[in-house]
Design a protein around this nucleic acid. Structure first.
Length: 260
DNA sequence: ATAAAGTCCTGAAAGC
DNA sequence: TGCTTTCAGGACTTTA
């Protein structure tokens, strides 16, 4: 689930319920989600009593700074989420970390598979993390977009998925964007025309706009994403049976009619 | 049992 | 030839 729009949704959830509040307790229920060498003790020691600042996002990473303390850094892998819960809401099976805020509510890092997790970072560690990432997909302008992609010889889908090129796009979003721009996912990026790249950039902007507002890639029937899990998925635009195979190591759906 | 929206690592091929 | 870029595949993990 968690691609850029989902993480933006988590950020908003956090700010609406946890913004500017004090961490009054921390419970690590499964230390399998602790990353970057953080231990439960260090997490408690460095977060307890701290006030949360304004959370921000870059790509699929969420950064939650504390006032006069380290930044809590979250990545959600494929199944993670962040949710704000009442104190008395029963603990779910996959609530891995529970932060109590102002003794009045809890912020929970929930994750079924523990592919990623949370860590603490100082300014330098945050900078190092960002160094490995391209610009956030939601803010890439057309010229920069073209510069980032036009020289790459690999498949356009691989390039879009590569977080060091553009940060935030995942498997579903990439397929959705390529479908909208009518570009085959295996097309070598450098073979794309100026017009192709323009269409791709426009499609990315529109898809992200809608998805960020929704807080996820919307499962609409008019979108490719809303069809890909059908038993006989067809293109929402032309009705052709969709193709499906692996590109860039991931399950990829496209329309053989629209995306030549 | 297979596959899944995430990333990281390795080894090897491709390209300059 | 040698360096860089890119890809495939496996690993991580849990459950439908």
């Amino acid at each position: 689930m968690p691609e850029l729009p989902d993480v933006e949704g988590f950020r908003r959830a956090l700010m609406s319920c946890g913004g500017r509040r004090c961490v009054t307790d921390i419970e690590v229920r499964d230390n399998g989600v602790l990353r970057g060498g953080v231990t439960e003790e260090r997490l408690r020691g460095q977060l307890k009593g701290k006030r949360l600042g304004k959370a921000w996002r870059h790509g699929k990473w969420l950064f939650v700074p504390t006032v006069d303390g380290p930044t809590l850094v979250c990545h959600f892998g494929m199944t993670g989420s962040l949710r704000c819960c009442a104190l008395d809401e029963p603990i779910a099976a996959h609530d891995r970390i529970v932060l109590t805020l102002d003794d009045t509510r809890t912020l929970r890092y929930r994750d079924q598979r523990k592919l990623q997790g949370v860590q603490l970072a100082d300014k330098n560690a945050v900078d190092r993390l960002l160094e490995g990432l391209g610009p956030d997909a939601a803010g890439v302008q057309r010229t920069e977009f073209r510069e980032l992609l036009s020289a790459r010889r690999g498949a356009i889908k691989s390039a879009l998925m590569d977080q060091s090129v553009i940060a935030g796009l995942g498997n579903l979003l990439c397929d959705e964007i390529l479908w909208r721009a009518r570009i085959h996912p295996r097309t070598p990026a450098r073979d794309l025309s100026e017009a192709d790249l323009r269409h791709l950039h426009t499609a990315m902007g529109r898809v992200l706009d809608t998805a960020v507002r929704t807080g996820r890639v919307p499962p609409r029937r008019s979108w490719l994403t809303g069809r890909r899990d059908d038993s006989e998925p067809v293109c929402p635009r032309c009705g052709t049976l969709l193709c499906s195979s692996r590109v860039a190591g991931r399950r990829t759906a496209w329309c053989p009619q629209c995306q030549s």
